[in-house]
């Protein structure tokens, strides 16, 4: 069943490896932030949105945040 160890391997689809510089794939955060573990960064983002601004939100919307 096994192929001989020195048998030529069938052709493989080898992708071109793309080496991107940082300014080609990310912006908007400090180097210190981007150096922190990804799980820690993404867990700490305020995904629910910022704290509501009582002066800017309609009263009903503001109350729904409380």
């Amino acid at each position: 069943m096994s192929a001989p160890p020195d048998a030529p391997a069938p052709p493989r689809r080898v992708r071109e490896v793309i080496t991107k510089s940082e300014d080609e794939y990310i912006r908007g955060a400090s180097a210190e932030t981007l150096a922190r573990p990804a799980g820690e960064i993404l867990e700490s983002l305020p995904w629910e949105g910022p704290a509501p601004d009582a002066d800017a939100l309609p009263a009903a919307a503001f109350l729904s945040w409380l």
């Binding site: 992708r15 071109e16 490896v17 793309i18 080496t19 991107k20 940082e22 080609e24 794939y25 990310i26 912006r27 908007g28 955060a29 932030t33 981007l34 150096a35 922190r36 573990p37 990804a38 960064i41 993404l42």
Partner: peptide
């Protein structure tokens, strides 16, 4: 690091022909 995850994801999609993703924080 977060920058490495962004690079991995961006390169993964680019190398497979989907275009070039750019993360904006």
């Amino acid at each position: 690091p977060m920058s490495e995850v962004a690079r991995l994801v961006s390169s993964y999609l680019s190398e497979r022909g989907w275009g070039s993703p750019f993360f904006d924080f």
